[in-house]
Design a protein around this nucleic acid. Structure first.
Length: 486
RNA sequence: GCGCCUCUAGCUCAAUUUGGCAGAGCAACGGACUCUUAAUCCGCAGGUUCUGGGUUCAAGUCCCAGGGGGCGUACCA
């Protein structure tokens, strides 16, 4: 508005014929007022005039004197509205909970000492036509909270805090990486071949090109093309899409951080992962010890490391590895009630993975780096320098959830072609999550990919960890839901 | 996909061991009140008990089918 600290009459306007004002200039917010005036004695009227705006959350009318509670996104502040000072006092008392108002007046404290703004002028900025949810309980129905996030955000303070934290996590992550020489890039979301991960893609169609396209399941192959191009430290934070079920830990579209560094290996990626997580914990929550729903977790470096074979061996009670014959592993799986898919053609690599995932992983709290996955189930990772059946790879497990996945990148175009072909063969046999051969990617590798370390972090899961919530829907503003039927 | 649980006023929740007139608080509406803070007090109104069948003299309650949601599981980094 044009009179941010004008007189009472000037600041008073209603949404009659002309409707609400087109703009409103506030010069104070609740959080700053509380900070600035924390020492004010009870019963003080200052001569400081402020203009604030927000949503009316509570209202207490006592005839000629009314109190309100305004929430402006930074916090709450009390409105003090005596008939002698507040223009159109009756209309002010008739405001509904949820209405948006702008208020200007002096800063003061009540006799009880509550910091308040006296309503010397006010404007109705928007009406809440729908009824306010319970002012004490808010809303608890998860469906309403997620479908109508706009309601959840203003009646559930914890929701607002969680998303503020997520935003800070994103900007701190960018700063952390930029400080280490990484540049942020954007690669295509439409992929002619869905590669870079083992997952089923969503399909779409481009009319002018007459081509079917996939929504990306990972940016990996494009980012490594950039390393070939000489951008030697890159990262991308962006949405990826996987056509799979919903759960407490899975949303079909989610936000992934991927980064690649030339001249680095998976050991460097471990260092980077734990540094980033520890740094975010300390800067965003003030402590490397994070509160979970039940209990706590300390993400202080260094994190424990164990190989997948070690963890699987521990779980089954005898020594196993990718070199153990499939028949023996299948027997162990059976005796531990682990279902074996398609017994005849199942390899040691897959069986070892199953044993780890079903028996060991659920018991891990972390933070821990699980390393040395079989090369067969890691088609984009470089073979281990000491054992060609293994990959130089790790997954970070924190608070029982997989948080990150990284490897020394496979740089040999011939080996990469063989891996792709093995994937394509699996695909031909009905594995619709297996990769297809990406000829352009092979062409890129043939120009020379230097030794490179790569890392992917599920940012939603990281936000869950930092916010101490147990459902991915708590950290995604508009999670995927069944479409509403009307 | 499968299993278990759940759905009552705008919101938060009640409604006796197979069943007996669908209720309260807050919000809304009318009134009183110049230091309240989940203000208080008086009054008024508010319902396809998710939907459709069935059992019964009688169904929010019991049975069947469908729908929404939650949790687990499967798939899935």
């Amino acid at each position: 508005m044009g009179e941010p600290d004008g007189g009472a009459a000037a600041a008073h306007r209603h949404s009659g014929e002309s409707g609400p004002p087109y703009r409103y200039e506030r010069d104070a917010v609740a959080a700053e007022l509380h900070e600035q005036w924390s020492d004010l004695e009870p019963g003080t009227e200052t001569d400081t005039r402020v203009t604030i705006a927000g949503r009316l959350m509570l209202r207490r009318v006592q005839g000629k004197l009314a109190f309100g509670t305004l929430d402006d996104g930074t916090g709450r502040i009390q409105l003090f509205a005596p008939a002698a000072h507040t223009p159109d006092h009756g209309a002010f008392c008739d405001l509904n909970l949820g209405d948006w108002i702008g208020v200007s007046g002096i800063v003061m404290t009540t006799r009880r000492g509550e910091l308040s703004v006296r309503v010397d002028g006010w404007d109705l900025l928007a009406q809440a036509r729908r009824p306010f949810p319970d002012k004490w309980h808010g809303i608890t129905d998860p469906d309403t909270r997620f479908r109508q996030r706009y309601v959840d955000l203003w009646v559930t303070p914890a929701a607002r805090r969680t998303f503020a934290l997520r935003s800070q996590m994103m900007s701190q992550t960018r700063r952390f990486l930029e400080d280490r020489g990484y540049i942020e890039v954007e690669t295509p979301m439409f992929h002619p071949i869905a590669g870079g991960a083992l997952a089923r893609p969503f399909t779409t169609h481009h009319n002018a090109l007459g081509a079917d396209l996939y929504l990306r399941i990972a940016p990996e192959l494009y980012l490594k093309r950039l390393i070939v191009g000489g951008l030697d430290r890159v990262f991308e934070i962006g949405r990826v899409f996987r056509n799979e079920g919903l759960s407490t830990r899975h949303n079909p579209e989610f936000t992934m951080l991927e980064l690649y560094a030339a001249y680095a290996d998976y050991g460097d990626m471990m260092e980077l992962t734990s540094s980033l997580v520890e740094h975010l914990a300390v800067t965003l929550t003030g402590s490397a010890v994070l509160d979970l729903g039940d209990g706590q977790i300390d993400v202080t470096r260094p994190w424990r490391q164990a190989t997948m074979a070690e963890l699987a061996s521990e779980a089954v009670g005898c020594e196993v590895s990718v070199h153990t014959p499939p028949g023996e592993l299948a027997g162990l799986a059976e005796s531990h009630d682990v279902a074996v898919p398609d017994g005849s053609r199942t390899s040691s690599a897959k069986l070892l993975g199953e044993l780890y995932e079903k028996l060991a992983e659920p018991t891990l709290e972390g933070p821990i780096f699980v390393t040395e996955h079989p090369a067969e189930t890691s088609p984009l990772a470089r073979r281990h320098r000491r054992d060609p059946l293994l990959a130089e790879r790790f997954e970070a497990v924190v608070a029982g959830r997989e948080l990150a996945n990284a490897f020394s990148e496979l740089i040999d175009p011939d080996d990469q072609r063989q891996r792709f072909e093995a994937q394509a063969a699996a695909r031909a046999e009905g594995d619709d999550e297996a990769m297809a051969v990406d000829e352009d990617y092979l062409r890129a590798l043939s120009y020379g990919l230097p030794p490179t370390g790569g890392l992917g972090i599920g940012m939603d899961r990281l936000a869950m960890l930092l916010a101490g919530v147990e459902a991915i829907r708590e950290v995604v503003l508009f999670p995927t839901l069944r479409p509403e039927q009307t």
